[in-house]
């Protein structure tokens, strides 16, 4: 096959072929790269069938891919082979996501302004033009601002700050402050494998954690704006 990420068409639609011998994080990066390179071919909001060959992706990986594809303007049709644990996505949910994505696509692309803390240099990868991936824990006092979607593979500790004009995805524990859609995009979302943030901001709305309570439920959650309210719900 040569490449770890490939496209193939079948009667159901476009299949994203994944080679799982590659480390999952690198795979995600290749996917983003591939999708960006094939954007004219794919068009917008394409439902992709994800085929991982012989081995099924685990539920965490499937979830990560769903969020990743959504943030890039597409969605997952289904996974091959399927995972017993994973539920098919609720239709209402994905509609909302599509709406979020379409609005984002219409935004005029502005010039990228990136502020990065020193020392994170080699852990950062620019993915095509759309997303910034940080493969490191973001620590107290560090600030990552990005014009676009920000993806962190690692924990974001209390005292750290993530700011993005697009979505923010944390594939780890989010304890610090995250501000998605910082230029007013109310469709932006914040996703974390474990959302335990002291404060979340989307566009001009701010939500803070209840005083003296910590989120002990280790389940992936998404924060988004619904009816001008910042709502956090399980994925």
């Amino acid at each position: 096959m040569g490449e770890a990420v490939n496209f193939k068409g079948n009667k159901d639609g476009i299949v994203l072929l994944l080679d799982l011998s590659v480390e999952f994080e690198s795979l995600c990066q290749m996917i983003v790269q591939k999708l960006w390179n094939s954007r004219s071919f794919l068009g917008e909001h394409t439902a992709l069938i994800v085929n991982s060959g012989q081995t099924a992706l685990d539920s965490g990986q499937q979830l990560a891919l769903k969020v990743l594809l959504q943030s890039l303007g597409h969605e997952v049709k289904y996974f091959v082979p399927e995972m017993a644990v994973s539920k098919p996505e609720e239709p209402a949910h994905s509609e909302k996501q599509e709406a979020a994505v379409s609005e984002k696509q219409q935004e005029p692309k502005t010039e990228k302004t990136i502020e990065l803390p020193a020392g994170l240099g080699d852990a950062i990868h620019y993915l095509a033009e759309g997303a910034l991936v940080v493969r490191k824990n973001v620590r107290s006092g560090q600030n990552i601002s990005y014009d676009g979607t920000l993806i962190v593979f690692g924990d974001v500790n209390a005292g750290a700050e993530l700011v993005a004009t697009g979505h923010i995805l944390v594939l780890g524990t989010l304890r610090g402050v995250a501000h998605a859609g910082c230029r007013g995009n109310k469709q932006a979302i914040v996703y974390a494998n474990h959302l335990n943030s002291l404060q979340l901001r989307i566009a001009d709305l701010i939500a803070r954690a209840p005083d003296g309570e910590s989120n002990e439920r280790h389940v992936p959650e998404i924060a988004r704006i619904i009816d001008n309210q910042l709502v956090i719900e399980e994925v």
Binding site: P117, A118, G119, L120, R139, S140, G141, Q142, N157, A158, G159
Partner: peptide, 12 residues
């Protein structure tokens, strides 16, 4: 919290 900050600065 401060240790976390320091670890970040050390890495930098």
């Amino acid at each position: 919290r401060d240790a976390d900050r320091i670890i970040g600065l050390l890495e930098a």
